[in-house]
Amino acid sequence: MANNPSAIKRIGINNKKRVANQSQKSEMRTAIKNVEALVEANDAENAKAALKDTMKYIDKAVQKGIIHKNNGDRQKTRLTNKVNGLGA
């Protein structure tokens, strides 16, 4: 357990940040699952619209350092390929 005041303060700050990051990461994952569900249902138009919103969630998570840049790029590429595969 933390003994000095600065360590106690850091524990509180880290907990607040963890909760905020968890929330944003959860929103991003939910958006990804929504796009994948639309792809499974062969709903091309709604999938494209959902993909656009999902890109914003992924970019925001990368910008805030919640996920790594390469991880974000990989997720966006995979989703884009899935959605583009519907049109073919």
Results as ranks from 00 to 15, higher is better:
N81Q: 15
A7W: 00
R10L: 03
N71A: 08
K17P: 04
R10V: 05
K56T: 11
K56M: 10
I58G: 05
N46A: 10
L51S: 04
G85E: 06
I67T: 02
I67Y: 06
K69F: 04
L86W: 08
N21G: 03
N4A: 01
R78S: 06
K25C: 14
K76F: 06
S26K: 11
N42S: 09
G65H: 00
Q24C: 01
S6Y: 05
S6D: 10
A49F: 11
D53S: 09
N34K: 10
I11V: 14
V62C: 12
M28L: 07
M55S: 15
G87K: 13
H68P: 08
V62M: 14
L86T: 03
E27L: 14
V39Y: 07
L38E: 03
T54C: 13
I8G: 10
N81C: 09
N46E: 14
N70Y: 02
Q22C: 02
L38W: 11
A2K: 09
E40R: 12
K56G: 09
I32K: 12
V39C: 06
M1K: 01
G65I: 02
K48G: 15
Q75A: 12
S23H: 11
A50R: 15
S26D: 11
K64Y: 10
K60T: 15
L86E: 05
A41F: 08
R74A: 09
T77Q: 08
N46G: 10
N3Q: 05
K17H: 14
G85D: 06
A31W: 12
V19Q: 09
R78C: 06
K17G: 09
P5T: 00
D43K: 10
T80L: 09
N70W: 05
A47F: 07
K17E: 13
K16D: 02
Q63D: 15
K60I: 13
A20Y: 08
R78L: 07
S6R: 12
M55P: 15
